[in-house]
């Protein structure tokens, strides 16, 4: 008799029916990233709309404009760290596509470590800004900046958890040339977080 089975395997849920040609999980991830674009777009729009209020002669005199508060070389280093983490992420994926278990796990771990380094840097930055007398409550710049970069930091945090959760399976050799969709999707998310930082770095820090 033909048997109807049930299984918790992630793949078999999607009984192939015909037109299927894309990986649904990748498709779902990209749909989610499209949504995230609009989410960060909303936050960046908020920053942009508030930006005129962050500059005035009086604020300039009190050294309270973003230009005087933000430390561009320091965040330049943060941008560099995140860029490196993107490289280690693709290298991890590349190693797994060639079934190199140890290399793949190492690069995943390196990515997570760089992510933590980035978060640490961001924490230092937030503390420095607080020392300048800028908080969520008392500055238009403060609230706009902290919400936007805070949400980016939250995304980095989620990404780190995700990366770390991939590592046990990577060490067991669970990802190989025949199956690397997990780290690939995680990588998409991670690169997206990097790309958001590229935009934030330009719009908040440099311009």
């Amino acid at each position: 008799m033909a048997v109807v089975t049930q299984s918790a395997d992630a793949l078999t849920d999607r009984a192939p029916t015909g037109l299927e040609s894309l990986d649904v999980r990748k498709l779902g991830m990209w749909a989610f990233l499209g949504s995230e674009c609009v989410f960060f777009g909303s936050l960046i729009s908020m920053y942009f709309v508030n930006r005129p209020l962050m500059f005035s002669p009086a604020l300039e005199a009190a050294h309270l404009t973003p230009k005087t508060i933000l430390n561009i070389p320091f965040t330049g280093v943060l941008a560099f760290i995140l860029l490196c983490s993107s490289l280690t992420m693709v290298l991890a994926l590349n190693a797994m596509q060639q079934s190199r278990r140890r290399a793949g796990s190492f690069w995943l771990l390196a990515t997570a470590f760089l992510g933590m380094l980035f978060l640490g840097g961001q924490a230092i930055e937030f503390i420095e800004i607080a020392h300048e007398g800028i908080t969520l409550q008392n500055s238009v710049f403060g609230q706009s900046f902290l919400l936007l970069t805070g949400f980016h930091g939250t995304h980095v945090f989620v990404g780190i958890i995700w990366l770390l959760s991939c590592i046990p399976r990577a060490l067991r050799g669970g990802f190989h040339a025949g199956n690397y969709i997990g780290p690939e999707i995680c990588g998409l998310y991670w690169h997206f977080v990097d790309v958001v930082w590229v935009v934030i770095f330009t719009i908040i820090y440099l311009i």
């Binding site: 894309l22 498709l27 749909a31 990233l33 499209g34 995230e36 609009v38 777009g41 729009s45 942009f48």
Partner: peptide, 23 residues
């Protein structure tokens, strides 16, 4: 697949549209 790019591009167009319109 170009379907993936389409999602990113749609999101980007909306985000940039929002940014410029709000501006």
């Amino acid at each position: 697949s170009r379907a993936f790019s389409a999602f990113l591009i749609a999101g980007l167009i909306l985000a940039m549209g929002m940014l410029f319109t709000f501006g």
